[in-house]
Computed example of a mutant assay.
Amino acid sequence: MSRIGPEWFKSSYSGTEGDNCIEVAVTPRAVHVRDTKDREGGQLSVTPTAWADFVAFAKAVEL
Rank of each mutant, 00 (worst) to 15 (best):
1 M>N: 04
1 M>F: 12
1 M>E: 10
1 M>W: 15
2 S>N: 10
2 S>M: 13
2 S>T: 15
2 S>K: 09
2 S>D: 14
3 R>P: 02
3 R>Y: 09
4 I>V: 13
4 I>Q: 15
5 G>P: 06
5 G>E: 13
5 G>C: 08
5 G>Y: 09
6 P>Y: 07
6 P>T: 05
8 W>G: 00
8 W>Y: 11
8 W>F: 13
9 F>N: 13
9 F>D: 07
9 F>T: 14
9 F>L: 09
11 S>E: 11
11 S>V: 09
11 S>Q: 07
12 S>F: 04
12 S>V: 14
13 Y>W: 14
14 S>L: 02
15 G>R: 00
15 G>N: 15
15 G>E: 00
16 T>D: 00
16 T>P: 02
18 G>S: 10
19 D>I: 10
19 D>Q: 10
19 D>M: 01
19 D>C: 03
20 N>F: 05
20 N>P: 03
20 N>A: 09
21 C>I: 13
21 C>W: 03
21 C>R: 04
21 C>D: 05
21 C>H: 08
22 I>F: 02
22 I>N: 03
22 I>A: 05
23 E>I: 05
23 E>Q: 14
24 V>S: 01
25 A>E: 07
25 A>H: 07
25 A>D: 06
25 A>Q: 01
25 A>C: 08
26 V>M: 01
26 V>P: 00
27 T>Y: 15
27 T>N: 15
27 T>E: 15
28 P>A: 11
28 P>S: 10
28 P>V: 09
28 P>K: 11
28 P>I: 05
29 R>I: 14
30 A>G: 00
31 V>M: 00
31 V>Q: 03
32 H>W: 10
35 D>Q: 01
35 D>G: 02
35 D>L: 01
35 D>A: 01
35 D>H: 08
35 D>C: 11
36 T>R: 06
37 K>E: 12
37 K>G: 03
38 D>H: 06
38 D>L: 04
39 R>E: 15
40 E>F: 01
40 E>H: 06
40 E>L: 08
41 G>Y: 02
41 G>L: 00
42 G>A: 01
42 G>K: 02
43 Q>G: 00
44 L>F: 04
44 L>C: 03
44 L>G: 03
45 S>I: 00
46 V>D: 00
47 T>Y: 01
47 T>R: 11
48 P>T: 02
48 P>M: 04
49 T>R: 06
50 A>F: 02
51 W>Y: 15
51 W>D: 11
51 W>N: 10
51 W>V: 13
51 W>C: 04
52 A>N: 14
52 A>S: 13
53 D>L: 11
54 F>Q: 10
54 F>P: 04
55 V>W: 03
56 A>K: 14
56 A>P: 01
56 A>V: 05
56 A>I: 04
57 F>C: 11
57 F>N: 08
58 A>E: 12
58 A>L: 12
58 A>I: 02
59 K>M: 06
59 K>E: 10
59 K>A: 09
60 A>V: 02
61 V>Y: 06
62 E>Q: 14
63 L>S: 11
63 L>D: 09
